[in-house]
Design a protein around this nucleic acid. Structure first.
Length: 562
RNA sequence: AACCCCGUGGUGUAAUGGUAACACAACGGUUUUUGGUACCGUUAUUCAAGGUUCGAAUCCUUGCGGGGUUGCCA
């Protein structure tokens, strides 16, 4: 018992159902699927679904389980190849693999058409000639039953003939539809003779102009699941009331597999907008630069921002899978990001907003010493590097205060501080320009403090620095939460709660020389500041651009807020 | 309004009729050449009422609260 409980298994109500099905011999393995519509970029909510579906396949790998990637492309007016490509890239980046199991709902259009004909022949579907408005009127309301269309009982031969003409393009958009014949009085509106085929004269991204009629989601999804032999079809809560319809098609069509739909709640993190429609608006109205803008909750945006895929997976795991529609504190994600980055990121020294320090008692202008700096204090295998120190360095502007409050441990006139990995210095003189802005500090160093504490006095802070002569320059983009309120989606207009400080661009930051070799896709901790990555779009060898993924926790800043 | 689903610390999740727990957050402390990390500690939870039971977060009933649904979107 002790041996098989060592695997840190994730468990939730869906995995429980799957376990029971497997134990009962209902299935010998699991087949799940991730079914995006290629009409936009994937976001954090999709990551949850991806982790669920692909995660289940990984966990049951010993039984031969798999997870399919299926593009749900039944609406040619909205879907594009651009999205098909980005979706695949995002799933791979998250660390999942569909192997050979790539599917498109559109590959089944012919089969779906045949099944529609089958239903007509069974007297379970009919061509309706009511207009869209009329169909809506006839459907009834939540409290009143609907009424039958006058075309509902037309002979099957007649429906068959018109349906065939619909396919061959003899009608305009919206002129006729094919409907399932179920029950116009059912309290579940989805069962009141749902439209299963509509006329859409539009070019499809894969089938071109082969078709001008397209199956609805309800008529396609479950059947595609059946064709692919999906065992458990997992979707979000808004499809719950569609399940009886899902089952109705599976029961009334000659399919060889009977998949089961199970619904779970969507992810809704604080301080973020999740709906695809609003994400589109953010891009199209220019509130952000692109789909992969680091302020976006898209997977590509998060990737560019520097969120590690492991952190996203870990976050999805802690969030879990339930039917409860709550709101998840974004701090959970931020914690997962810091946890992963703390583990993997190489430490660097970078001065975001520099002031010059000259060390007046340094042995000479030409004298340089190599300071040894560790790359990651939690992981010795990541090694060390050296940083040259000579008479002039840059330090951070907020590491100096003319009139410091009591608990300020950093530099101020007459105080002593350690230059990290190096000597302690004392500030002797403050030089300001005519406007009173500090432009330089004159300090003296204590040569006896390298690698040891000064004698007889306590130095409480170590501040980061960058050598003046060898410093690299870079643009640094500081990102903060994209919205100012925890539920931007609940606002009358989310545009009014966009955080104006979500992006701050720093043009004159100074980096330690080793960052010349910074690699796209690698995360660095700029010590005492945060985690940063090379921007994948705008950075170049001669003009470096870094994005702040997330700031370090800052108990000093927190203390000052109080 | 009708139907369906869901209610466990501030937030998310676990406990599957048998001592209500974990993570995050918040707060306090120890360590520290990152005001970081790590470690220790504190605060705080079963929506309500009734019922079944030796025993209920769990099962039943009612109420209350939240979410979803009234596309020829998915």
């Amino acid at each position: 018992m002790a041996e098989n409980s060592n695997i840190n298994e994730t468990s939730d109500f869906i995995r429980d159902i799957i376990r029971e099905d497997l134990d009962a011999g209902k299935h010998s393995t699991t087949v799940t699927r991730f079914p995006p519509e290629p009409n936009g970029y994937l976001h954090l909510g999709h990551a949850k679904s991806i982790c669920l579906n692909f995660g289940i396949a990984e966990e049951n790998a010993s039984t031969g389980s798999r997870c399919h990637l299926r593009f749900d492309d039944t609406n040619p007016t909205k879907e594009e190849t651009e999205y098909v490509d980005s979706i695949q890239e995002d799933i791979k980046w998250l660390g999942f693999d569909w192997g050979d199991y790539l599917y498109f709902a559109s590959d089944n259009f012919e089969q779906l058409y045949e099944w529609a004909v089958f239903l007509i022949n069974q007297g379970k579907a009919y061509v309706d000639e009511l207009t869209a408005d009329q169909i809506r009127e006839y459907r009834g309301t939540l409290t009143e039953p609907g009424k039958d269309s006058p075309f509902r009982d037309r002979p099957a031969e007649e429906s068959l003939e018109i349906f065939s003409k619909m396919r061959s393009g003899q009608f305009k958009n919206g002129e006729k539809v094919l409907r399932a014949k179920i029950d116009m009085a059912d309290p579940n509106i989805n069962l009141r003779d749902p439209v299963i085929y509509r006329i859409l004269h539009a070019e499809h991204h894969r089938t071109g102009t082969d078709w001008c009629i397209y199956p609805s989601y309800d008529f396609a999804h479950g059947q595609c699941d059946a064709i692919e032999a999906i065992t458990h079809s997992l979707c979000t809560l808004e499809f719950e009331q569609h399940r009886p319809l899902y089952d109705w098609f599976i029961d009334n069509l000659p399919v060889s597999h009977k998949p089961r739909q199970i619904e779970f709640s969507k992810l809704q993190p604080t301080f973020t907008l999740m709906s695809k429609r609003r994400l589109i608006q953010m891009v199209e109205e220019g509130h952000v630069d692109a789909w992969d803008d680091p302020r976006m909750s898209t997977i590509s945006g998060m990737r560019r921002r520097g969120y590690p895929p492991e952190a996203l997976r870990s976050f999805c795991k802690t969030v879990g899978v339930t039917k409860f529609t709550g709101i998840t504190d974004i701090a959970l994600l931020e914690h997962a990001i810091r946890e992963q980055l703390n583990r993997e990121a190489l430490r660097k020294m970078v001065v975001l907003d520099p002031i010059k320090v000259s060390i007046t008692n340094w042995p000479g202008e030409d004298h340089t010493e190599q300071m040894n700096a560790i790359n990651n204090p939690g992981d010795d295998s990541l090694g060390a590097r050296t940083i040259p120190l000579s008479s002039n360095v840059y330090i951070e502007r907020d590491d100096f205060m003319q009139d410091p409050p009591k608990k300020f441990y950093r530099l101020s006139p007459g105080s002593e501080v350690r230059l990290r990995y190096s000597y302690c210095i004392t500030c002797d003189e403050v030089i300001k320009d005519s406007a009173g802005v500090v432009i330089e500090l004159k300090c003296t160093y204590d040569p006896l403090t390298l690698g040891k504490n000064p004698e007889g006095r306590k130095v409480r802070a170590a501040i980061h620095w960058v050598p003046f002569n060898e410093a690299l320059s870079a643009e640094i983009r500081l990102y903060e939460r994209t919205f100012t309120v925890d539920e931007p989606g609940a606002e009358d207009d989310w545009r009014t709660v966009i955080n104006p400080d979500a992006l701050t661009v720093l043009k004159n930051s100074k980096l330690e020389p080793s960052l010349a070799e910074a690699i796209i896709g690698t995360s660095y901790q700029f010590e005492r500041k945060g985690y940063f990555c090379v921007d994948s779009k705008n950075s170049s060898k001669n003009s470096l651009v870094f994005n702040r993924t997330i700031a370090l926790r800052d108990s000093w800043a927190k203390m000052n807020k109080k």
